[in-house]
Nucleic acid binder design. Structure first.
Lengths: 185, 185
DNA sequence: ATAATTCAGACGTTATATTGCACGTGTGTG
DNA sequence: CACACACGTGCAATATAACGTCTGAATTAT
């Protein structure tokens, strides 16, 4: 999300137009200069949070109405085109399919474990929950010194704020999808 | 809300400490320099929304958890100390008691009309609702060419996206409280 | 039609957000 | 004790956000 501020600009411009406000009027109301407003609207400049606060306050807007992303109705992510994060000498590969963003409180990966691979994952912060959907192979997960065996088509859900271990003890590859949810707190 | 960015700094520092992260680690995770993080935490610098985005993404946080205001448990606002906005040659006075802020979608005024005063208010944008609580005197409000008489202790609620008129036709002062709610849309 | 007004964008200047480097302060470890 | 290491902060350099002024185009008024 490099061009994130362009969204804010479009939102501001749309709202300003809806209300039939000129840049001058908006500048007067918000206390932000006309030039700056124009640059923000055109994505030429990323405002500081103080000026964003001024704009939101002057226009009587919430933050969410300003930062709300334009969601394309359809997006396709090709796994082939995603660079995996490799660990355990390439035996453990993570493909970020849906990266985290502050609006959406979760992220989605596709994970591959070669036979015999054991991966020890660091605990996440409190309130984080993992949803593991196994597609191929049999995955062993260790949480709280307890071993869980997850067969294909099965799903494991657990609070990931403690260390956990993924193991592929079978002789075929394990492919699974992992959804990680971060609580707002 | 002049020192608005200090709140964000405190929030970031609190969360970082909760997770036992150093500035170096946080810089590595978020892609924002250690120095900048330190300055933001101490309120010495107001970040742009792009760096705030980086921080929120790297730390897996929502915007709301970063911008959430610290609310003092008790606040008292003395009307004597509030500068009113005067119109109609001082016959119409507006005291802003609770100013708008982007988190809280409303604002509260205390309004005074001298006897005989008529004030024509411009329409607000769509979705705006007004709640008028009359404390003293009798207030006449005209909305949609319809006249409403509001006695003391009574409350008038109406969509304020059209022109409306306040009138004091009695011989005593009218004092009322007005809550204006701005829809998030 | 001409003048006046309003609008959006360009230019130059100032203020400040952002970075990399370096310094001082602890905190353990040999 | 000395050494290394991690942590937070200060400083100079740079990038860029923010502002005021001006210009050209479009709209409205006279």
């Amino acid at each position: 999300m490099e061009e994130f501020h362009t969204n804010i600009g479009e939102n501001i411009k749309r709202i300003r137009k809806e209300r039939n406000l000129s840049l001058d009027k908006t500048a007067e109301i918000t206390g932000v200069s006309k030039t700056m407003l124009g640059q923000i609207e055109r994505g030429k400049s990323a405002p500081t949070i103080t000026t964003l606060w001024k704009i939101a306050s002057g226009l009587r807007l919430s933050f969410s109405s300003l930062v709300s992303q334009y969601k394309p109705s359809v997006t396709i992510v090709k796994k082939k085109e995603v660079n995996p994060i490799v660990e355990n000498n390439g035996q453990y590969r993570v493909y970020p399919l849906v990266p985290y963003n502050p609006e959406q409180q979760f992220e989605i990966f596709s994970v591959t474990l070669e036979p015999g691979c054991e991966h020890i994952a660091d605990p996440h912060s409190t309130g984080v929950e993992e949803f593991i959907l196994v597609n191929e192979g049999t995955l062993e997960v260790v949480v709280n010194e307890q071993v869980y065996v997850v067969e294909p088509e099965d799903t494991l859900i657990f609070k990931a704020d403690r260390p956990h271990i993924y193991r592929n003890i079978g002789d075929r590859m394990v492919k699974c999808s992992i959804v990680i949810h971060y609580s707002s707190q």
